[in-house]
């Protein structure tokens, strides 16, 4: 199938190096310590963060650092056809793990020993790139909760179809069967904390594709930073400082 037309437009009208429209909103769940909604095109996820708080299961408590837990789930209504998936299926478990590891790498866990941080992410609407959207939402929520972090970790995916590197794949492009590279990135430190791909790709092409994903991460980071600044200004204003 033709995923990029000879005119250089993708199926949804984007050019290969363009992301979908992104939008973030801080404070979606009042009860949580921090929360956010993050949208990448039609993909929409909500994240809620509780903590740092007392460790629930004493046996898991660590004396030198905080325990980070993450739970990923997809709402039943998130895909077009309603599917009742059992909780804790392999895909969700894997994504939970991926998100936990990515977030753990940027949270300064050593500052909060003997405590626990819970991150809940749920996909409200799925249209490809849920992994990236979840990480971005979690970052926003963690920042909202005021948890100390080394940097804002952001994520974006990229792929390679019709001999073209594509940024931010949507569902149609994702299910084309080509490679899908998801990158988690610390923009200030210029470090990659997550790199996933489940296909084969020649090394030189892979580097280009990964570089493209990193550029995407940087763009997301800029947006998130602006969003947080704006949010802080709002808070300041409300407090009347």
């Amino acid at each position: 199938m033709e995923y990029v037309s000879p005119e250089g437009l993708r199926l949804d009208g984007r050019r290969p190096m363009e992301m979908r429209q992104i939008r973030g909103e801080i404070g979606a769940v009042a009860k949580a310590d921090g929360s956010a909604v993050f949208e990448m095109g039609n993909t929409k996820v909500i994240a809620a963060v509780y903590g740092p708080r007392e460790v629930q299961n004493r046996s898991q408590q660590m004396n030198d650092q905080a325990l980070v837990r993450c739970e990923y789930s997809m709402a039943n209504f998130s895909t077009g056809d309603r599917m009742r998936k059992p909780k804790g299926d392999r895909r969700s478990t894997e994504i939970s793990l991926v998100i936990r590891q990515t977030m753990e790498a940027c949270i300064m866990t050593h500052l909060m020993p003997r405590s626990q941080i819970d991150i809940f992410v749920q996909v409200l609407q799925a249209d490809g790139g849920t992994r990236s959207a979840c990480i971005n939402a979690a970052t926003l929520a963690l920042a909202d909760a005021g948890i100390p972090m080394r940097d804002l970790v952001t994520s974006c995916s990229s792929g390679y179809l019709n001999s073209t590197a594509l940024l931010d794949l949507n569902y149609v492009e994702d299910s084309a069967g080509g490679p899908d590279v998801t990158v988690g990135f610390l923009p200030k430190l210029d470090k990659v904390t997550l790199l996933q791909m489940d296909a084969k790709l020649p090394l030189d092409i892979f580097e280009n594709v990964m570089q493209l994903a990193i550029e995407g991460c940087k763009a997301v980071a800029n947006y998130i930073r602006e969003l947080l600044l704006e949010n802080t200004k709002q808070l300041e204003y409300r407090r009347g400082v």
Partner: peptide, 13 residues
């Protein structure tokens, strides 16, 4: 065979 609603983004430039 099934009737499903498909929503796709469509960017106008």
């Amino acid at each position: 065979g099934k009737v499903t609603k498909v929503v796709r983004e469509h960017y106008l430039r």
